Amino acid sequence: MKGLFQTKWSVISIAVLCSVLWGSAFPVLKISYEELQMAPDDIIAKIVFAGIRFLLAGVIVLAILLIINPKRIFITRRQLFVLVILGIVQTALQYFFFYNGLAKVTGMQGSILAASGTFFTVILAHYYYKNDRLNWKKSIGLTAGFIGIIIANWGQELRLSFDWDGEGFMILSGVTTAVATIMAKELATGIHPFAVTGWQLSLGAILMLVIGVPQISKDAITFSPLGWGLLIYLALLSSAAFGLWYSLLKYNHAGEISIYKFVSPVAGTSLSSIFVPGENLNVSIILAIMMVAMGIIAVNYPSKQVDQLKQKQVG
């Protein structure tokens, strides 16, 4: 099993699979909104739906951890406090913006706008870590990425479209992702990655359900067999992609696999154009995908200094 996560082509295949799974969430969510008859402006319905999904995903991750390493599922009081904070920021707040923002933009736009989290993380890391400063490669990547995000909101009529509760929420979701990434790295040291994700997903989801369930109207969400299937798929893709990704991180350098995250917006836009009615690829979207993908590759491309350090460590 260890070799599966170390062989070059299997590592690439698994990294690409994870990115495709994350990308597939965009069209699946758009279809889910229609199938479950959730109104675009119904914020509470989105909160409850996200809460159900991530509670299922969190429980699945914790169940996997219970099987592979039962002792790591237990946490201290201090760790519980940290995980509650992460649950609030990384699950409840981030996905409040994400779910409600995605309801107001297309699946293709959402796939591209969500990539802003990668770029905001690079910017925050520059100011927070002395050994993770911006260089010319990262600067070019950030420029290309943000240009792509702007182009994604440029319609066929060459008019810039931006609504705070649509594109704005997606950008805020990206900012929250970046903040949560730094917080998780700093606060969650010593906690097994599966425990971090499982607990913060579950705790954040419980908060969303506690807030949403008492306020939701009777017919806000109409479940159907297909709707349940889509919900279960979303929960499973989160837990599966997470499990595979962290298994890769365990045996490989982060930059070596993060570079394949460019596949996520490509998959998200492509799958949205195939499965979401009324969404079609156009020149601006294709150009935006290219710019964002180039940006993700550039900011994650390992520098010569990193390669030299790795060679010294191996020697």
Rank of each mutant, 00 (worst) to 15 (best):
L65R: 04
V314K: 15
F81V: 05
F97A: 10
S24T: 13
S264N: 11
T118D: 09
E186W: 06
V196W: 07
G168W: 08
L56A: 13
R133V: 09
L4I: 07
A267R: 02
P193Y: 04
S217G: 12
G101F: 06
F74D: 04
T222D: 06
T106Y: 02
Q94G: 10
I289C: 03
P193D: 00
V61S: 00
S24W: 13
T269P: 01
A267D: 03
S247D: 10
D41R: 11
I151N: 00
G255L: 00
R133C: 11
I289K: 00
I75S: 00
L226M: 09
Y260L: 03
A45W: 08
A92Q: 07
A195D: 03
I147R: 06
A184V: 10
G315W: 12
S272R: 03
P214W: 08
D41K: 13
N131E: 14
L80C: 02
V175F: 04
Q94R: 07
T176M: 03
L231W: 05
L187W: 12
I151T: 09
S202P: 08
F162D: 12
A50S: 14
L93T: 14
F26K: 02
R77D: 04
K30N: 11
T177R: 04
K2N: 14
A220W: 07
P40Q: 09
G141I: 11
L230P: 10
H192F: 02
T121I: 14
L113E: 03
S217H: 12
L124W: 07
F49H: 10
L209A: 06
Q200V: 01
V196Y: 04
L237E: 15
Q156T: 15
I147E: 04
L172V: 05
W199C: 00
G168H: 11
A267S: 10
C18T: 08
Y128I: 12
S10L: 13
W245E: 07
I211L: 09
M108D: 01
P193Q: 01
A57G: 05
G23L: 09
L55N: 12
E157T: 14
A254Q: 15
F169R: 02
H253E: 15
L231P: 03
M291Q: 03
I297T: 11
K130V: 09
F146A: 00
A15N: 11
L160N: 10
K312T: 12
V292T: 02
L124R: 07
Q109K: 04
L203W: 07
S238A: 06
R159S: 15
H253D: 15
K30T: 12
L203T: 05
Q313P: 02
L207D: 01
G107H: 05
I289D: 01
L248G: 09
I274H: 02
F262V: 00
L209M: 08
L56M: 14
L237T: 13
R159E: 15
G204M: 00
A152N: 01
A144M: 13
I67H: 08
T91Y: 00
V196D: 00
I182N: 09
V84F: 12
N100G: 10
G255V: 03
T106G: 15
I151P: 00
